[in-house]
C-alpha cells in the first residue's frame, strides 16, 4: 500500500485504528484510503482550491483524529462522511486570506486568454520545445501496451474517435468508464514524468 508522506509520519497505531474503521480487511482498507484520498484531491481541485494536496490531508487528518479519539461517527457511507468534512475544509480555505500575490493570479489568467496564442504566451518557444521533448521521452518510456492504448484513444475525429474508444474498450474487455480511468492514469503518469523531466 502506498501511503502518502504526511499520513506515514503519523502514529502507526492511530493509523491502524483508522484503517480498521475504514474496513476490517487491511488490504481492502488500504484501497479505500487511497480511493478517498484521490477523490478528495479531485474534489478540491474541481472546486477551485489551489492547495488540493494540503486540503485533502487536512480532511483525512480531521477524520482520523475523530476516529482515534473514539468519537461516535454515524454514517452509512464513509465516502460521504469524508465529503462532509471536506466541504467544511473548503469553506475555511475560501475564508482564509490567500498567500498567492494578486499579481500572480492576474498574470496566470492573462496567459490563457487566447488558446491560439497559448504557446507563445505561456511558454517561450524554447520552453514549449522542452515540454514536447520531455513528453516524447516520457512516452517512449511507457510500456508498449500503454503507448498503443493512448494512441488509439486519441486517434480520429469526433464520431471516428468515439468508435475507436468503443472498440478499444471491447478489445480490452473493459467498460467505457474503466477505459477512461485507465487513460486518466496513463496521462497522470505522463504528467508526473514530464514534471520530473522539466526539472532536470
Amino acid at each position: 500500500m502506498n501511503v502518502s508522506g504526511k499520513i506515514a509520519e503519523l502514529d502507526q497505531e492511530k493509523f491502524r485504528v483508522f484503517l480498521q474503521w475504514l474496513h476490517p480487511d487491511v488490504k481492502r482498507a488500504g484501497h479505500i484510503y487511497e480511493d478517498i484520498r484521490f477523490k478528495l484531491h479531485k474534489f478540491f481541485e474541481w472546486r477551485g482550491c489551489w492547495e488540493c494536496e494540503e486540503c485533502a490531508d487536512i480532511t483525512i487528518d480531521r477524520v482520523l483524529h475523530k476516529v482515534t479519539a473514539g468519537e461516535e461517527i454515524r454514517t452509512s457511507n464513509h465516502y460521504l462522511y469524508f465529503l462532509g468534512v471536506a466541504r467544511n475544509v473548503l469553506f475555511e480555505y475560501w475564508k482564509k486570506p490567500k498567500s498567492t500575490p494578486v499579481e500572480d493570479v492576474t498574470e496566470s489568467k492573462q496567459l490563457y486568454t487566447d488558446p491560439g496564442q497559448h504557446e507563445e504566451n505561456l511558454f517561450a518557444e524554447e520552453q514549449w520545445s522542452k515540454q514536447v521533448a520531455c513528453m516524447k521521452r516520457c512516452m517512449s518510456t511507457l510500456p508498449e501496451d500503454k503507448r498503443v492504448l493512448i494512441t488509439g484513444y486519441y486517434q480520429g475525429k469526433r464520431r471516428e474517435k468515439i468508435n475507436n474508444r468503443q472498440k478499444l474498450a471491447e478489445w480490452l474487455n473493459l467498460s467505457e468508464n474503466a477505459l477512461r480511468l485507465r487513460m486518466f492514469r496513463i496521462r497522470d503518469e505522463l504528467e508526473k514524468c514530464v514534471k520530473k523531466c522539466l526539472k532536470t
Binding site: 493570479v105 496567459l111 490563457y112 486519441y154 514530464v194
Partner: peptide, 20 residues
C-alpha cells in the same frame, strides 16, 4: 486556467496530443 494544476494539465495534454 487560473488554477496552476489545471494549467499544467492543459500543457501536458497539448504536448501529448502533439507528440501523438
Amino acid at each position: 486556467l487560473a488554477h496552476p494544476q489545471w494549467s499544467q494539465k492543459v500543457t501536458t495534454m497539448k504536448a501529448m496530443l502533439q507528440v501523438l
